[in-house]
Design a binder for these strands. Structure first.
Length: 586
RNA sequence: CGGAGCGUAGCGCAGUCUGGUAGCGCAUCGCGUUUGGGACGCGAGGGUCGUAGGUUCGAAUCCUAUCGCUCCGACCA
């Protein structure tokens, strides 16, 4: 490609609403242009990157035996009503009416449509297994779109759906997809990790997320450096401490802690470590009916819970939701806390409560504590030297309700956990029969009777990968794309192309040679000043560059410089292709 | 959805408090000089100041409403 025939729209200053490196750099490099919140035009340069990602995904999906199709972006509401997701999905699902006043949605995913295809087209177990996929535009009306393409509303996603006559078939395909994803992210040149993920309300036995590792990631991942254990922190089991509960060593004492409402403030006053304190979180279990009747005083079915966490730990709401009888819950109001505990928030604790009215749920690590500090249920006071059994009954429930932290024992028993951050770029899921049941999708099994289809689904965020790759690869000069997805593999910068016939000839020769070798080459024939050409190539993240100028040609040399090289290498023009090929083979 | 902030040229911003000719840098266009790290000079074009009302002789500026965007939180996955 000649730069003069292409469209390069780099800018020096990023728009002020771009916060993270990838968003700023994508804007500055002219890869994307914002049209509305979370909605971007892929400019020619950006589209080339997306296409390269798509092609790798497509090749590996095909290799794994999946079959490409393309489903509509606009889908009738009826299908979504049938699956129940029309109600369930909430405002993230974009809904609208056509001219006949019929309801439609913009697809956020396509389980309904593919299951509809399956029930109409799949008749016999002999047609299984089958895995359909598409690379398609998705729309999710995110409450807070941000970070450019990382959390956009409109984005490109590869979504695949597999169908099986039995669970074993699903498990086999799940593993097949796991392996395919591993190949895809490896080929994309990304540092990534597959982690166990929450299966949510669907249940089932398996779900893994694939995360690109980056400090700016929105997800925290727990992993064991000594083993292959890795899980989203949402899910990672937080183990009880290895040591059992210690014996009581101190008498329980009430101490005045005026205006000290947080664990941090209290331990600071007492000169104790944060891990010696217990924080209490007041939750109210409130059934859906009571929610619906807001305003009306509906106490039926409400239950007050006090959750106990070590002062240095964080509540995991997903885990809390799994405590028997707690879900659905919300944080209790100050009035409710006063009613059940007789005290204002900041000084509440588990000692001396009316057990039937207040259910105590202790985290595993709290259950193993002794001589701890907690609120005294009296404004301005805390208790020290508190011990289970002696000072208060054993907690009604002991459960894992916190986020795992660095240094926790690994759930697989091998070493300790560490925490890193990741950007979710892939998610594979054993859906089982959720949709086939809802849409009554069966095939005739071996025994001649209908069986519900077992389903798996497998997503990859194509546009998000571009952002993730930039988060992982950039410096002060711009983007450092992995070679596999760079918009161009190599750039040629001829200095003074309009002035020097020698430069022009050498550049054209090299350009033809690289093109003939099938290499994606950008010849910068814009007759820009060298600084402009270099800055653009580096900002856009082109991995390799040849510079051709009169100065070098006099010596019979041109220059090669890799995007991350600190200096250029002088080479003979005839060696350029061989050198580049050796670099690409790495 | 709650809290905060911002909407002035393609981008980054000043001007708003204290009403009176709409500005700066980058980018763009023309001419010239430049040509190994985002050149320089001279000249030019481009804005109904988010939108709609109101106050006023006069509104970017004050008031009201509304829309959009951003951040923090909640929510969702």
């Amino acid at each position: 490609m000649r730069a003069s025939k292409f469209f390069i729209s780099t800018i020096k200053e990023a728009p002020s609403d771009a916060e993270i490196a990838s968003h700023k750099l994508m804007m500055r490099a002219g890869l994307i242009k914002r049209l509305a919140g979370g909605i971007y035009t892929l400019m020619p340069m950006g589209l080339r990157v997306v296409r390269k990602v798509e092609n790798i995904v497509r090749e590996e999906m095909n290799r794994a035996g999946a079959i490409e199709l393309s489903m509509p972006v606009v889908q009738p509401a009826e299908l979504w009503q049938e699956s129940g997701r029309y109600k369930q999905y909430g405002p993230e699902l974009l809904r609208f009416k056509d001219r006949h006043d019929r309801d439609f949605v913009m697809q956020p995913t396509s389980e309904e449509v593919i299951t509809d295809i399956a029930r109409n087209e799949l008749r016999s177990y002999r047609q299984l297994p089958v895995n359909f996929y598409q690379i398609q535009t998705k729309f999710r009306d995110e409450r807070r779109p941000r970070f450019g393409v990382m959390r956009g509303r409109e984005f490109t996603m590869k979504d695949a759906y597999s169908f099986h006559a039995d669970f074993d078939g699903l498990k086999a395909e799940y593993q097949n997809m796991f392996d395919a994803y591993t190949r895809i992210f490896t080929r994309l040149g990304l540092k990534f990790r597959a982690v166990a993920a929450d299966t949510g309300s669907i249940g089932g036995t398996g779900s893994h997320e694939f995360h690109v590792l980056a400090d700016s990631g929105e997800d925290a991942l727990a992993f064991a450096p000594d083993s292959d254990y890795a899980a989203n922190v949402e899910l990672a089991e937080a183990m009880a401490p290895a040591k059992p509960r210690g014996a009581a060593g101190a008498a329980m004492q009430k101490v005045a802690t005026p205006n000290k409402k947080t664990c941090e403030q209290v331990v600071e006053q007492l000169g104790l470590p944060l891990s010696q304190s217990v924080k209490a979180i007041a939750l109210m279990h409130e059934p859906e009916e009571a929610n619906a009747a807001k305003g009306v005083v509906a106490t039926t079915g409400k239950r007050f819970f006090m959750l106990l966490l070590r002062g240095d730990h964080e509540l995991n709401e997903i885990k809390a939701g799994k405590v028997a009888g707690l879900s659905p819950f919300r944080f209790a109001t100050p009035a409710e806390i006063a009613n059940y505990v007789g005290c204002e928030p900041g000084y509440i604790g588990p000692v001396g409560l009316d057990a039937p009215r207040v259910t105590i749920v202790a985290d595993r690590s709290v259950a193993a504590m002794s001589d701890f500090v907690c609120g005294a249920n009296e404004a301005g006071y805390h208790l020290t030297g508190v011990n289970w059994v002696r000072d208060l009954p054993e907690p009604a429930v002991v459960a894992d309700i916190r986020n795992a932290v660095k240094g926790d024992p690994s759930p697989d028993g091998k070493g300790e956990l560490d925490i890193c951050r990741g950007i979710e770029v892939g998610h594979i899921f054993q859906l089982r029969t959720k949709y086939s049941e809802a849409l009554k999708s069966t095939v005739i099994g071996v025994d001649g009777k209908p069986v519900l289809l077992e389903m798996g689904c497998y997503g990859i965020g194509v546009t998000r990968i571009v952002g993730a790759a930039i988060e992982q690869g950039h410096d002060e000069r711009g983007i450092i794309f992995p070679a596999a997805i760079a918009p161009f593999t190599v750039g040629i910068c001829p200095i003074g192309i309009k002035k020097s016939d020698a430069v022009k000839a050498a550049a054209e020769t090299l350009y033809s040679e690289l093109q003939a070798a099938g290499i994606d080459v950008l010849l910068d024939d814009r007759d820009e000043r060298p600084g402009v050409m270099f800055a653009d190539m580096e900002l856009i993240g082109i991995p390799h560059r040849f510079t051709i100028g009169d100065r070098g040609l006099k010596e019979g040399k041109i220059e090669y410089q890799g995007r991350t090289d600190s200096a250029a290498t002088q080479i003979a023009p005839a060696e350029a292709l061989a050198l580049l090929k050796s670099k690409l083979a790495l």
